[in-house]
Nucleic acid binder design. Structure first.
Length: 501
RNA sequence: GGGCCGGUAGCUCAACCAGGCAGAGCAGCGGGCUUUUAACCCGAAGGUUGUGGGUUCGAUUCCCACCCGGCCCA
């Protein structure tokens, strides 16, 4: 698109046209509306911290240079009050014509939304508001589009998500949520690093969609002439690293699932996966609790939160629930891995679970769990010992046939984390993959594919290993109180705007 | 994929139910004001009512299709 097109699309709006005219006038007057750099000496929040106790009408003799976006202007004639927003917060600007003299008219001509730098003395007004007396100022970038309404802000959810840059400027909650997400991820990294885990990066482009039960995005590598998939999980590459001797590894990375969009699903989302050699799923229980509690403490200041208007406690110890036991409780039938298939089918159906032909006891139990049990769990709960049939990468329970050493953490009715004692017997792993391939042939398009290289890695020897995956976006939702995953992802996926097509 | 709700000025919202000149606040523009805090006062502007069709003398309003979003369900 050429410059002429850009210009004409902006000219359609009389408000931006007026500001473009200002840009021309500034250049005519020798003022560059888009300078290259600027030197700041102070942030708003630091000034409030250091001078918050000043009385009204005070001066400090402290000269500072602040910079940020002009968020408000109150023009009194020969006095103008401005509001500057920088990354730390807000500070008032006090512009007095008798101080600024020749520059005063230009200051008055600034628009809300402009980026500016201001030099002057820290002082307070007669009303006691901490301010910078404007002794000089520099336009850092002229804003051409008007900001949303100063009081109501930007409410339209679609526009807030499509134009997150505007949302972040005018809605403090958007900034706070973004900051809490960053703090959550920092906390996870710190907690893991403190325990001797190292962060690694594994491929996003996979030749097989492994490590999970989900539809992948498909793509094509032209030079190699092969189809590829965006990863649906991090699991198998991380376990290959444990084979290689990197005993404690983790990755915080984007995974992609070709599924619908909802308040808890975005097609790409952020997963934490952790693998610890010489450990099993009981070690993952301890680690998972610690990671969440440490993040809650770092981000929220404690483990007691409010979610969807209800109290929720993340404090340890979390409840524990046996997978089959919970389904038995919910249906009134004695569910076990070796139960009669028809009994399982009739029990599930009687409880209102919708089932399909060809499902085994494990799949039926899983569906019953999701329908009947999961939505009822509020405080974090470890659900333990899943059916072997639906857990092709988990190790069989050391004393209970038909189930695996696995847990999921359910919080507020949804899955937050998933962990197992990792299956490290290559012969058994091959049998599990073969069962998955058979399920795929029978119509389960999400069944796990055969991964010969992964089997080869296991054949070199994976030590006893505990592994855990956690949905980072879900954790951030809990710690921010946001009920839609789109609020904790800066740029959630939406259908393209008409102008993009 | 289905149901319900929404889309009106740059932003936040009226008017729609029951068809009759599309309004307000903020922002912007012009003027006034030396301590404002959503500043205030005066004035003049600003609209393809999501898109396309239909009904009607007349459609933001009623009907149909589509687009985008939200919530719920699958």
């Amino acid at each position: 698109m050429g410059d002429g097109d850009e210009r004409s699309s902006l000219d359609e709006n009389r408000l931006t046209a007026a500001r473009l005219a200002k840009v021309d006038r500034l250049r005519d007057a020798g003022v560059e509306p888009y300078p290259y750099r600027f030197e700041r000496t102070a942030f708003a929040a630091d000034l409030h911290d250091r001078h918050g106790d000043l009385g009204s009408g005070a001066t400090t003799d402290e000269q500072v240079v602040v910079a940020g976006r002009l968020m408000g202007m109150r023009d009194m004639g020969s006095l103008v009050f401005g509001v500057l927003l920088d990354p730390s917060g807000r500070i008032q600007l006090f512009a007095d014509e008798s101080v600024l003299e020749g520059g005063f008219a230009a200051f008055s001509d600034l628009d809300v939304g402009d980026w500016i730098g201001v030099a002057g003395e820290v002082m307070t007004t007669r009303r006691g508001e901490l301010s910078i007396r404007v002794e000089g100022f520099t336009l850092l970038a002229k804003g051409l589009r008007p900001l949303p309404e100063k009081w109501h802000g930007l409410k339209d959810i679609e526009q807030r998500h499509r134009q997150r840059y505007v949302d972040l400027v005018v809605n403090e909650r958007a900034r706070r949520t973004a900051a809490k997400r960053i703090a959550t991820i920092e906390s996870l990294r710190r907690s893991l690093s403190d325990r001797g885990f190292v962060e690694v990066e594994t491929p996003t482009l996979h030749t097989l969609p492994t490590g999970g039960h989900a539809l992948p995005f498909e793509t094509h590598h032209d030079a190699l002439g092969i189809d590829m998939y965006l990863r649906i999980a991090l699991e198998l590459h991380l376990k290959r690293l444990v084979v290689g001797g990197m005993e404690r590894v983790f990755e915080i990375g984007r995974v992609f699932r070709n599924e619908g969009v909802s308040t808890i699903h975005n097609p790409e989302f952020t997963m934490l996966e952790v693998y610890q050699g010489l450990a099993d799923y009981t070690d993952m229980i301890v680690l998972t609790e610690a990671l969440v509690i440490e993040a809650a403490t770092a981000v929220h200041g404690g483990t007691e939160i409010e979610f969807k208007g209800k109290d929720l406690s993340l404090a340890a110890p979390w409840d524990r629930l046996d997978f089959f036991g919970s389904v038995a409780e919910a249906t009134g039938t004695d569910w076990t891995p070796d139960m009669d298939l028809e009994t399982a089918r009739s029990s599930a159906t009687a409880a209102g679970v919708s089932i399909e032909q060809g499902w085994g006891v494990g799949k039926l139990a899983a569906e019953a769990f999701e329908t009947l049990v999961e939505p009822t769990l509020w405080n974090p709960t470890f659900v333990l010992n899943h059916p072997k049939e639906i857990s092709p990468l988990a190790r069989e329970h050391r004393s209970r046939p038909g189930v695996v050493e696995r847990f999921e953490v359910i919080v507020a009715g949804t899955e937050l984390a998933n962990a197992f004692s990792e299956l490290n017997d290559p012969v058994e792993q091959r049998r599990r993959f073969e069962a998955q391939v058979a399920a795929r042939s029978a119509g389960d398009v999400e069944a796990h594919p055969m991964d010969e290289d992964y089997l080869r890695a296991l054949e070199y020897g994976l030590p006893p290993t505990g592994g855990m995956g956690m949905g980072v976006d879900r954790l951030v939702m809990l710690l921010t109180g946001e009920e839609s995953v789109r609020e904790v992802i800066l740029f959630p996926h939406l259908r393209p705007e008409a102008s993009d097509l």
